[in-house]
Design a protein around this nucleic acid. Structure first.
Lengths: 200, 200
DNA sequence: CTAGTTATTAGACATCAAGTTGATTATCTT
DNA sequence: AAGATAATCAACTTGATGTCTAATAACTAG
């Protein structure tokens, strides 16, 4: 059985991904062409089509990889205690991990999350983050009857808020450490944005 | 002096905008072509170029109009009292107005905000909303030295969160009334998402 | 190391949308 | 009603897309 793919394929795909990242940084996703990618990756344009249907397919597969990476990172955190949740210990640990991943793959994640790009993509990442960071963890502690707002808006609110903060961080060049970012998000979500703003 | 533009121009532009909205709903912004617009608007393709540089220019100008609309709505709310702010009265009034505008222009705003589209655009709207809804109003009450988190992350957090909720509402077909939505956003932002979730 | 497999290449090709242009027609404004 | 200007039609160039074939290069398994 053949587990590792042909080295040529590995190399070609790596070159294509590298070209994608650099071109997104350069001109944004919508503006780049398959021809651009082929030139930058130093491959024949036809070769691109041997691996991807079009540039959207390439973006999809790239995102798929990132999603897989994040999921596998989160799977490392296995057993959670209720107490840790309520006082924010476990969420922080998870969030730190995610920020560390973004940091370690800065050029890729910055290109994909932080620059002008497709927003269906962004929506998708938001859902992945939501699913892995909150749904799995918080859901057990949320009682429908205690909700002050419909759950779909609670979800949108938190997911969008966190995603926005991550984007801001990436756009600013990841100046804060993952730990600091986790602290910031904890403050905002656990105490509420207005308290974090010092208004009350 | 000539204030009203030629009727032919008005008609053509209206037809183009209508075509844009219906095509965004149909296939999303990136997928639609100038040719599509011309056919749907029942104009010559060349005519499109008499008014817009390309489809991105059309989108920009459309967004510009929406932004102007929102700004003029917000200008109606003139004098604000500090007390109303702290207890959330004024923000609610503003937010209701905005939701009402979205509701009244549902097909346009839904097409632009809620479907797969350009995200630079989304970012821009986020900034407009932030500027008009929060910066002008909350900023005077926020003291830098009281902030528990850097202001740029506070900004991103709140702007993204609210934008996410608006999107969710539009995607779901605006089932709640503007008043209900304002209430939901107040609960989330003033009490904090976890309190709104009934967790504490 | 070899043989057979498979990825990559070069180049050509048809297709389609994007913009532009010039001459003509239709419609508006005053 | 007359002059201005918007819209039309058709044609054309350019550039990207996706597909294909034959030839070559690189890999893997034995």
């Amino acid at each position: 059985m053949n587990f590792s793919e042909d080295r040529r394929i590995t190399r070609t795909k790596a070159a294509i991904r590298e070209a994608l990242v650099s071109l997104i940084e350069e001109k944004g996703f919508e503006a780049l062409t398959v021809k651009d990618i082929a030139i930058k990756a130093n491959i024949n344009r036809g070769t691109f089509y041997l691996h991807y249907k079009d540039k959207y397919d390439l973006l999809d597969q790239t995102l798929e990889d990132i999603a897989r990476d994040i999921e596998s990172i989160l799977l490392e955190i296995t057993n959670l205690s209720v107490a840790d949740f309520i006082n924010g210990q476990t969420p922080s640990a998870i969030i730190i991990k995610v920020f560390e991943y973004f940091n370690a793959n800065a050029s890729l994640t910055q290109a994909i999350l932080a620059t002008k790009g497709n927003y269906a993509l962004q929506n998708r990442i938001k859902k992945i983050m939501w699913h892995n960071l909150f749904e799995k963890n918080y859901a057990p502690f949320i009682k429908k009857e205690n909700l002050l707002v419909p759950s779909e808006y609670l979800t949108s609110y938190i997911a969008s808020a966190h995603f926005g903060v991550v984007q801001e961080w990436l756009e600013n060049g990841c100046r804060e450490t993952p730990e600091e970012m986790a602290k910031i998000l904890s403050n905002l979500t656990f105490r509420g944005p207005l308290t974090a703003a010092g208004i009350r």
